[in-house]
Structure formats: C-alpha cells, structure tokens
Amino acid sequence: MSGIGVIFDCDGTLVDSMGAWHEVDRTLAAEAGIALTKADADAITTMSLPEASAYLHEQCGLGASSEDVLAMIFERMRAFYANEVEARPGALAFVQGLHARGVPMAVASSTPPDMLACCIERCGFAPYMKAVVSVDDLGTSKREPAVYDHARSFLGTDRAHTWGFEDAAYALDTLRAAGFRTGAIYDNDISGSWDALVARAELLIPTWEDLTAEAFLDKVRA
C-alpha cells in the first residue's frame, strides 16, 4: 500500500516485556534494601536507561554509581531477552499481514541496540522490518521525535502517512505533536492507562488479536 508506513515500539507493544523492565528496578532496589515509590516508578517510565540509572543511584541510593546501576540492569535484561521474552499474542500475525500487503515497517525503541536486536530476532519480527532503531543510536529519548524520524527514513513515508504504535502515553504525545498518525495498544497503567491512551491515540486496541492487518488498512483508507 504505497505511501503508508508503520513504526512499532518494541517493549509492551510488540513484545511482553514491560513487566520485566518494571520488576528489574524494584528487584535490584529490594535486594539493596530500598523500596521504590509510585512516584519513582512514574518518573523512571519516561527516562532513557542512563537517565533511569542515574535517578536510581542519585535519588534512591542504589549502587556505587549510576554506571554500576546500568550494568546491573543490563545483566538482568540481557538474560531475559536471550531466554524468556515472547511476542504479544497476535503481534507477529499482524506484522506478517501488513508485510503481505506491502506496508513498510520499522521498530523504534528505547531499548539498547544489542538487546533490541536479540529481542526482535527471537520473537520473529526481524524479517519483516526495514529497520530496527534505538534511541541510543541517536543519543536521544522518545520525548523527542528524532528516533521516529530516523525509523521513518527507511520507510520512504512522510509523517502524515506514518503510523506509530505505542503503549506509552508520553511517547504518543511525542508522535502526535510531530504530526504522525497514532495507534496504541494497552499494556499496563504505568506505561499508560486506558483513559490516557484513549485521549492520545486515533486507534486503541486491548490486544493485537483485536486487530487484523486488513481491518487496520480499511481504517487507514477511510
């Protein structure tokens, strides 16, 4: 379908991994005798990994340094991506359906590149993506549209004809402000409550099993 492109977030959108990300902070903190508050969790959700590591060290007292915290997180999450992560139900079928209909796709994620590549390969998405990019490639975060524009450059589409699918409310704010089309899938209230996603997305689904590629493209054509 000429002129239409789709950019997917990875964690919480294509794959079931946000629980592991939320838990790794709490687990590492608990092992050090530190209890994270809801305010801590809310703050960390919008941060890049270096920012979150600095926050956990400086504000919560975890680790000998922010670099130490980052290394601990990486060790736990690399093992998770290599051995445990799974695609969200229906996600691969949706991606395959778009690919069969000629829709170019990419992944734009806040996950470090090595973990991201491992995850996309393990869960079967790699053959269908024009690009898999991380905010780390650009030294930015999803509070800015740069990572989406970088992914879009591989699709040959403009912002107005490129859909971004996210589970995080703050990332949808970025997409919408930049003029992208916005799709959302609910994952958890930390990333974005149902009401928060409704307020930000043109299209919201509970699971990928609730949307076929054909139904999505019918909406795009409407």
Rank of each mutant, 00 (worst) to 15 (best):
157 T>L: 03
164 G>V: 14
166 E>T: 00
179 G>P: 09
171 A>V: 13
147 V>T: 11
153 S>N: 03
177 A>Q: 13
148 Y>K: 05
151 A>D: 09
183 G>S: 12
151 A>G: 14
148 Y>N: 04
155 L>P: 07
166 E>D: 06
175 L>M: 15
170 Y>H: 15
172 L>E: 01
173 D>T: 15
180 F>I: 08
167 D>P: 07
154 F>P: 08
153 S>V: 00
179 G>M: 10
181 R>C: 14
164 G>W: 00
174 T>K: 06
159 R>V: 14
154 F>L: 07
147 V>P: 04
153 S>C: 01
157 T>K: 01
165 F>P: 00
183 G>E: 10
170 Y>Q: 06
172 L>C: 02
177 A>N: 13
168 A>E: 05
174 T>E: 06
181 R>M: 14
146 A>I: 12
151 A>W: 06
160 A>P: 04
149 D>T: 07
146 A>P: 10
157 T>V: 03
174 T>H: 07
159 R>S: 13
182 T>R: 13
160 A>E: 12
157 T>F: 02
180 F>R: 05
157 T>W: 03
157 T>D: 03
165 F>R: 01
163 W>G: 03
172 L>A: 03
149 D>F: 06
165 F>I: 10
152 R>N: 11
153 S>R: 01
176 R>F: 11
173 D>C: 14
149 D>L: 13
179 G>K: 11
178 A>E: 08
171 A>L: 08
151 A>V: 11
171 A>R: 04
174 T>A: 11
184 A>H: 01
175 L>G: 14
175 L>A: 15
170 Y>V: 11
164 G>R: 00
148 Y>R: 04
176 R>T: 15
184 A>W: 04
164 G>A: 10
182 T>H: 08
146 A>D: 15
183 G>T: 12
168 A>F: 04
179 G>L: 12
149 D>Q: 12
173 D>P: 06
152 R>C: 09
166 E>F: 00
180 F>G: 01
148 Y>T: 05
163 W>V: 00
184 A>Y: 02
182 T>W: 10
147 V>W: 04
164 G>L: 13
148 Y>F: 15
163 W>S: 02
170 Y>C: 07
149 D>I: 05
